[in-house]
């Protein structure tokens, strides 16, 4: 915080949610996780801006990009908002014991390296508590593969969770959301804001070096 009490060090948080309905409980969980993170960052005097990517709005474009290997203009902007953020909150519904196919198809469009060292808060929704391990057997390995920093706490919300309040104790959904938000805020507070991605077209070495590297 500066002397006059204004918040500094703006962080950009991208939220990727792959719910299918409107409104969707997946989006609801994503919003709550984002709000908890922003509040926990504010406690530390750090301002944050949140940018939402709703996968459903890009559904056709995701399939087209999978086939043509290039994203259309709107999808390209959505991908850039995720790969350029300081942190990612990723939330998917649970379908047939894993993330939704559309969610994975979107993630498949991210270039290798684009989430390197990026803090990721994972979340999932489902019909019953019995799917909660989707966080640890599907989402966590996915983002670990992408070399992201996956937070220890992931948040799974079953339908029943939306009807339980703080009275349910520390294990209730609001408590888990707050805890995840605090973890992400603490991680972000200890890091510099991410520099703007450098031009992917720059070659590291002069061509002579490329030639010599083969000797």
């Amino acid at each position: 915080m500066t002397n006059d009490g204004r918040m500094t060090a703006n962080r950009r948080i991208a939220v990727l949610s792959a719910g299918l309905g409107t409104p969707s409980s997946t989006r609801l969980l994503a919003d709550r996780l984002a709000a908890a993170t922003v509040a926990a960052l504010a406690d530390r005097g750090i301002a944050a801006e949140v940018e939402h990517v709703e996968v459903r709005e890009h559904a056709q474009a995701v399939v087209s990009a999978t086939l043509t290997r290039f994203p259309g203009p709107d999808l390209e902007r959505a991908i850039a908002s995720i790969t350029g953020a300081d942190a990612l909150i990723a939330v998917t519904p649970t379908f047939n014991a894993s993330y939704s196919g559309l969610f994975k198809s979107f993630v498949d469009l991210l270039e290798p390296g684009s989430l390197d060292d990026v803090p990721v808060l994972i979340g999932a929704t489902g019909g019953s508590e019995r799917h909660s391990l989707v966080l640890d057997h599907a989402l966590r390995p996915l983002f670990a593969y992408l070399h992201a920093v996956v937070l220890p706490t992931g948040v799974y919300a079953a339908s029943g969770d939306w009807g339980s309040g703080d009275a349910a104790g520390a294990g209730a959904l609001p408590g888990r959301i707050d805890r995840a938000g605090r973890e992400l805020a603490a991680l972000l507070a200890g890091r510099q804001a991410r520099p703007v991605l450098e031009d992917a077209l720059a070659v590291d070495a002069d061509f002579e070096d490329l030639l010599r590297s083969l000797d």
């Binding site: 087209s64 086939l67 043509t68």
Partner: peptide, 15 residues
């Protein structure tokens, strides 16, 4: 073979 069943002709010609 390459772009079939993906984007529409209109999208692809625009992009």
């Amino acid at each position: 073979p390459v772009y079939g069943h993906g984007p529409s002709l209109e999208e692809f010609t625009a992009q």
